[in-house]
């Protein structure tokens, strides 16, 4: 599969590397992102509502490898801070970081949906 990927938020070089151009493999990872991220975003919202720092850290920690794999633009520092400064960040700043992450991941999700629709359906 030789596609000129038109992405603004995602860097798909890891995906292309692991799938070796096999469309079924590419789709498997894209669909997994589409499946796993929304419930985690909902959990993040819950954590935010409860002001539960540990819950937020756990969700971010769990998502982090997949987000790194998809090379999502502009969230590296946010993830690092949420994972490692979650105990000491002022609550307001923590909330801002979580909201920033959610907004970016929702955009990334839209991009994934668009890629699936454009190239696979």
């Amino acid at each position: 599969m030789d596609i000129k990927w038109n992405t603004s938020l995602l860097d798909l070089k890891n995906l292309i590397g692991i799938s070796r151009g096999d469309p079924d493999q590419i789709l498997k990872y894209l669909e997994q992102f589409q499946k796993l991220i929304p419930p985690r975003l909902a959990q993040l919202q819950q954590g935010l509502g409860k002001k539960d720092r540990e819950m937020i850290r756990k969700i971010v920690h769990q998502m982090s490898p997949q987000l790194q794999f998809f090379g999502i633009e502009g969230i590296g520092t946010t993830i690092t801070r949420l994972e490692f400064e979650y105990e000491t960040l002022p609550m307001e700043e923590l909330e801002d970081l979580v909201k920033h992450l959610i907004i970016n991941l929702e955009s990334a999700l839209l991009e994934i949906v668009r890629i699936i629709r454009t190239y696979f359906k």
């Binding site: 692991i18 990872y29 997994q32 992102f33 796993l36 490898p65 997949q66 794999f69």
Partner: peptide
Amino acid sequence: DDDPFIHNLLRDKLQQ
């Protein structure tokens, strides 16, 4: 591992 993404990634890397 509690992350299904890691299952996939590790399995694929091993297979390949």
